[in-house]
């Protein structure tokens, strides 16, 4: 069992609020991602959970026991959690097996080596058991760091942007490996990252952290399809923002009447956020949109369309994307998100 509860966590450095009243609930065996831009307070949040910092205000509970408040902090070594840092931080004076076994105490030599072997197998590095850590590639080092953190069977694993130092292809493969390893160990984990793709593809639940405050918590699909404000809508994936007016239960925009999710108040003006993949461009010589730019990515393309003075970016099937100069009709598929007042 592992239940982590943060209540009203505030952290101030030199009079500056890095975190303000953060509430989080992480449940047993959950893979929880905290998503935020750089300097949003992600690392501070992890350091508070790990016990390296004392909160200015608020409490942290692990399995019902208070481990941090503004007056006392349980030392890191008694918290029963594991860290996987950004640059793996393996101990350079120890080999791979010794690194993984570092936190195993109170076990017989036999049990210890059995546990190390088990983890080596889990992260598929058995043949590197006695390798020096400086011989490992970035991805291998990160897997050793994960195994090292998992070895003492901690209640909670903290992953601090663990994939950001790796190249794109390795990153997506390692992500799935890590997810599988965490599941196999039945671990509860918190991942902090600035990479929305990483958070959405890996986590069971995502919290969006902005300027030291949690602005939205939910399942990945929920966060992506219904961002609570324009800021998150643009932060999570490519969104086009246009003005709109609520008219007859629909939203009147330059792109026509659009269907929005949620409650609408007749006559209210606001901003509509449309995902670029929700556009459909139909080639039409009589269309009132004109393609003014195209960036080709292979599997898809982003097409820039000028329609009645408004520029939109639409994601389109790569090889069949309309070319610059073509006239198109712009359709919006599905529902859009409407944010009144802005």
């Amino acid at each position: 069992m592992a239940e982590l509860n943060l209540r009203g966590i505030t952290k101030t450095f030199d009079g500056l609020n890095v975190l303000q009243g953060v509430d989080l609930e992480v449940h047993d065996r959950e893979l929880f991602a905290v998503l935020g831009a750089s300097a949003a307070g992600k690392s501070t949040l992890l350091r508070l959970i790990a016990g390296f910092e004392k909160p200015t205000d608020g409490t942290i509970e692990l399995d019902g026991t208070e481990i941090s408040n503004s007056t006392s902090v349980l030392v890191p070594e008694k918290r029963n959690l594991g860290i996987v840092p950004q640059d793996s931080a393996l101990f350079p004076h120890l080999d791979v097996s010794q690194n993984i076994g570092f936190g195993l105490s109170g076990l017989s030599a036999k049990d210890k080596s059995a546990r190390v072997a088990e983890l080596l197998e889990l992260v598929e590095l058995t043949e590197f058991a006695n390798a020096r850590v400086d011989q490992l590639s970035g991805g291998q080092a990160q897997r050793v760091a994960l195994a090292r953190a998992l070895a003492p069977k901690p209640a909670l694993i903290l992953l601090d942007e663990p994939f950001s130092a790796l190249d794109a292809e390795l990153r997506s493969r390692l992500r799935q490996d890590v997810k599988a390893a965490l599941r196999a160990e039945g671990a509860t984990a918190i991942l902090v990252t600035h990479d929305q793709e990483e958070a959405l593809s890996l986590a069971d639940k995502v919290a969006v952290l902005r300027n030291g405050k949690i602005v939205q918590v939910g399942a990945p699909t929920e966060i992506y399809s219904s961002p609570v404000d324009v800021g998150i809508a643009t932060f999570l994936g490519d969104s086009v923002l246009i003005d709109g007016l609520v008219t007859g239960g629909k939203i009147q925009t330059v792109l026509g009447k659009l269907t929005a999710s949620g409650e609408l108040v007749e006559g209210q003006a606001g901003t509509v956020a449309i995902r670029s993949e929700n556009f459909y461009l139909q080639p039409n010589p009589a269309g009132d949109g004109e393609v003014v730019g195209r960036v080709f990515f292979g599997h898809d393309a982003v097409v820039e369309v000028d329609i009645r003075g408004v520029k939109i970016r639409a994601r389109s099937n790569g090889p069949f994307a309309p070319e610059v100069g073509m006239k198109v009709t712009v359709w919006v598929r599905g529902t859009v998100n409407f944010y009144p007042g802005s």
């Binding site: 070594e77 594991g82 860290i83 640059d87 350079p92 570092f102 090292r148």
Partner: peptide, 28 residues
């Protein structure tokens, strides 16, 4: 790196022992 000490502590090794098990061997 201070991070190595922190990792060591999070693995259950107290601060003073981390100094002996991590910092001193690396600086030796």
């Amino acid at each position: 790196p201070v991070l190595l000490e922190e990792v060591s502590q999070s693995l259950g090794v107290p601060a003073n022992k981390s100094m002996v098990r991590v910092v001193l061997p690396i600086a030796l």
